[in-house]
Design a protein around this nucleic acid. Structure first.
Lengths: 231, 231
DNA sequence: CGCCGGCAAACGTCCGATGTCTCTATAGTG
DNA sequence: CACTATAGAGACATCGGACGTTTGCCGGCG
């Protein structure tokens, strides 16, 4: 189990050391294989792993390149990881969001531009119009929070929170919200956050975001409780 | 580029759907290949990717099994991702830690047991004894923060913060601290956090953790500034 | 009852061949 | 001269088979 993993480590360390800066093209697979002392098969496995981590970008017929290594890419894996977490750990994820999202929203209140606010207002309007359509609600909900956090200008923070709010997790919460006739109330929570942001009120934005996450957590608890008692 | 990626998606979705619960043994590679309609090579690449994500556990001579899917495993990849981030995004990571770590430390103040406090005290003592030895300081520093956050009982939170405080990042900060003769002061910051935790004072713990992260960030800025002006 | 050796199963690695896609340079055309 | 179509080379995608190594298990032996 050493050869392929060694290759992974070697390539990774070459990138980390700056020997292979973003955008660099790697040698062809056969040459890379010779260079690292293993067969082409092993190299392919190593490259595939790094490709799945968005560290390498393999272009068929062309070559293999080092990606930009932007946080948006490297932290993308967090999302798929969260999707695989078991139900009983989803509450842990919620607890993290409970800490992070209010802080991020508060920070956004300080950094948000008028254009950002207009975009948010539009999303809010879309959300209201989509009431009843679970699929769209989930989509606009994701867009709303993503937009808010993105205005902090911190791509790492944005990617992290995006990953923590995985699609499945979000879908479950909304399922609970809709079945519990709480969708309308939740949409209004977004409005409250919007108002706080528009007022550039950091503390208010923070508080309203916390309330919102808390609502989500409560409904997630309901959904999880219901499914576990189904057995 | 479809076959292997399809296989990855298939296996992942089988796990997510509960069809392959933690601990399950997958069919042998040749059989899995037939089942998914591709060669053994492709299956191996897919399995390797999921193994690197700590989703599968491949035991040579035995078989391939689904891991426990614990957050500690699945979120491990965050660490290697952070290690690959470019210098200019490390400040973004610090900003996230600035939000998350104080909250986590504050929470720890509420949940910490006497045994946890004793362990922390021991680490603090070790840290003081190691003054001057950068390697040990880094190690005890990591142990200190890990222990604090671990007492929250939130494994997801712990894994996340562990990943965000990658070894390389920590090493750089301590390099700055030592060269700037600020190591002693930083050790005392740990003591301050410890006292707040011992007093079960959430707000004080939160504040002292924020100060501490801020110090780290300042020294990271120094280190980054120095290296970039080296050119 | 416990230890030990051998067998079978499964993963690790390698090799060679063929398919398919991209990019590029080149020849041809208007 | 500029543009376009095309052929070729280069590179990844996939396959099939072979052989080595490790592990787990089971039966035999002391």
């Amino acid at each position: 189990m050493a050869l392929t993993d060694d290759a992974i480590a070697k390539i990774r360390s070459m990138i980390q050391s700056g020997e292979l800066p973003p955008g660099t093209r790697l040698p062809p697979e056969p040459q890379l294989a010779a260079q690292m002392g293993l067969s082409r098969s092993g190299v392919r496995e190593a490259v595939k792993v790094l490709e799945s981590a968005r560290v390498l970008d393999v272009r068929r017929g062309d070559g293999t390149y080092v990606t930009s290594l932007a946080p948006r890419l490297l932290l993308q894996g967090l999302g798929v990881a969260v999707e695989l977490l078991r139900d009983d750990t989803l509450l842990e994820v919620m607890e993290v969001r409970r800490m992070l999202e209010p802080m991020a929203t508060g920070l956004a209140a300080l950094r948000m531009t008028d254009a950002d606010l207009d975009e948010l207002g539009q999303i809010l309007q879309d959300m209201r119009a989509a009431a009843g359509d679970a699929e769209k609600l989930i989509q606009f909900d994701a867009a709303f929070h993503h937009t808010v956090v993105a205005t902090t200008g911190n791509e790492t923070l944005t990617s992290l929170l995006d990953g923590l709010s995985g699609r499945t997790l979000r879908a479950r919460v909304w399922r609970g919200l809709i079945e519990g006739n709480a969708a309308h109330q939740t949409i209004e929570e977004h409005h409250t956050i919007y108002l706080a942001l528009r007022a550039r009120d950091q503390l208010l934005a923070q508080a309203s975001a916390l309330l919102h996450v808390n609502t989500s957590e409560a409904w997630l608890r309901t959904v999880l409780g219901a499914t576990s008692s189904d057995r």
